[in-house]
C-alpha cells in the first residue's frame, strides 16, 4: 500500500498527489512514469512522474479526472492509500549537452509534465521559453512554478479569457519567425496538440521531443498494448519511450488506438453510477 501524503486540487479537474514510495523516489528521473492501481478491481493506469523528493521518499503525480480510473483515484484523500504503485518506468528524458535554447510547450494537464522538463533544462543552464496552453482561465495550473523555471512564460487560452488568445502553436510559430533559434522543442499535452506542434517545427527542422501516452496494461515490456509507430517501426512506449522524436510519430494511429475503449468506458461508468458521472 502506498500512502497519499498530500493532495491538492490544482483546478476543478486536476489533482496533485504526493505519494509515499521511497524505492521509486530514490530512482525516479524526469520523463519517467509510474503505474497505479487504485484497488483490487482497478485498472493499471500509467501517469508521468511530475516530481519526486528523494529525502521524503515521495513521488508527485498530477492528473486530470478524465476517465473511470483517474476519477476513482481522485476520490482518495490525504492519508488514504493506493493499492499498487510501481515504477519508475520508461526511459528518462535525455537532453543533449549542446542544447542551449529550448521551447517547452505544455497543453492543459500536460503542463504538469512539461514543468519538470522545463525545470531540468533551466537548471542545466538552458534558455527556456515555456508556452502553456489552456482552454480557459479557470483551468490554468502551475503558472508560478513555470514562471520560476523559464526565461519567458507565454500562457495562452483558447477563448482569450487569460493570456494570449489562441493556441500554443500560434505562439510557437511567432517566436520561431521572430528569430528565436531553438535547438529543440519539447511538446507535452493532448495528442492533437503534439501533432500540430510537430507540424509547426518540421519545416524549420527543429528537433521536437514528445511524451506519448498510449493505452498500457503492464508497462514493463510484456503486453505490447502501448505500441506506437515511430519512423515506420513498431516501438513500445513503456520500454522504448515514453519520449520519442515527434517528427517520426504516427499521431493519427495513436489517436485512433487511444479511443479503443471510449464507448466501453462510457457504458461502464453508467453501470457503476446508475447513469450519474461522478468521476
Amino acid at each position: 500500500m502506498y500512502k497519499i501524503m498530500r493532495k491538492k486540487m490544482l483546478n476543478e479537474q486536476v489533482v496533485l498527489m504526493e505519494v509515499y514510495a521511497p524505492h521509486i523516489a530514490k530512482k525516479a528521473l524526469a520523463g519517467q512514469f509510474i503505474i497505479f492501481r487504485v484497488d483490487e478491481k482497478g485498472e493499471r493506469i500509467p501517469l508521468t512522474i511530475a516530481d519526486y523528493d528523494r529525502e521524503k521518499g515521495t513521488v508527485t503525480i498530477i492528473f486530470q479526472t478524465i476517465g473511470l480510473s483517474t476519477g476513482r483515484l481522485a476520490k482518495l484523500d490525504e492519508g488514504d492509500s493506493i493499492l499498487d504503485f510501481v515504477g519508475p518506468l520508461g526511459v528518462p528524458t535525455h537532453f543533449d549537452e549542446n542544447v542551449k535554447k529550448v521551447a517547452v510547450v505544455g497543453g492543459g494537464v500536460g503542463c504538469a509534465i512539461a514543468y519538470p522538463q522545463a525545470k531540468a533544462l533551466f537548471n542545466m543552464g538552458c534558455e527556456v521559453d515555456v508556452i502553456a496552453g489552456f482552454r480557459n482561465k479557470d483551468i490554468v495550473i502551475l503558472e508560478d512554478e513555470m514562471k520560476k523555471v523559464s526565461t519567458n512564460l507565454y500562457v495562452t487560452t483558447d477563448d482569450g479569457s487569460y493570456g494570449t488568445k489562441g493556441f500554443v502553436t500560434n505562439v510557437l510559430k511567432d517566436l520561431i519567425d521572430k528569430g528565436n533559434n531553438y535547438d529543440a522543442v519539447v511538446a507535452i499535452g493532448p495528442v492533437p496538440m503534439m501533432k500540430f506542434v510537430c507540424e509547426v517545427t518540421k519545416p524549420y527542422g527543429i528537433k521536437t521531443i514528445v511524451s506519448l501516452n498510449p493505452i498500457m496494461v503492464d508497462g514493463t515490456g510484456m503486453c505490447g498494448g502501448c505500441r506506437v509507430t515511430v519512423g515506420g517501426v513498431t516501438k513500445y512506449a513503456c520500454v522504448d519511450g515514453p519520449d520519442f522524436d515527434g517528427h517520426e510519430v504516427d499521431f493519427d494511429e495513436l489517436m485512433r488506438r487511444n479511443n479503443t475503449y471510449k464507448n466501453h468506458e462510457k457504458n461502464h461508468i453508467c453501470r457503476l453510477t446508475g447513469g450519474v458521472r461522478n468521476g
Binding site: 524505492h23 530512482k27 499498487d84 510501481v86 519508475p88 518506468l89 514493463t220
Partner: peptide, 10 residues
C-alpha cells in the same frame, strides 16, 4: 515482493 521491476527500481 510485488510491484518491484528489477532493472528499473533496483
Amino acid at each position: 515482493m510485488t510491484n518491484m521491476v528489477i532493472g528499473k527500481v533496483m
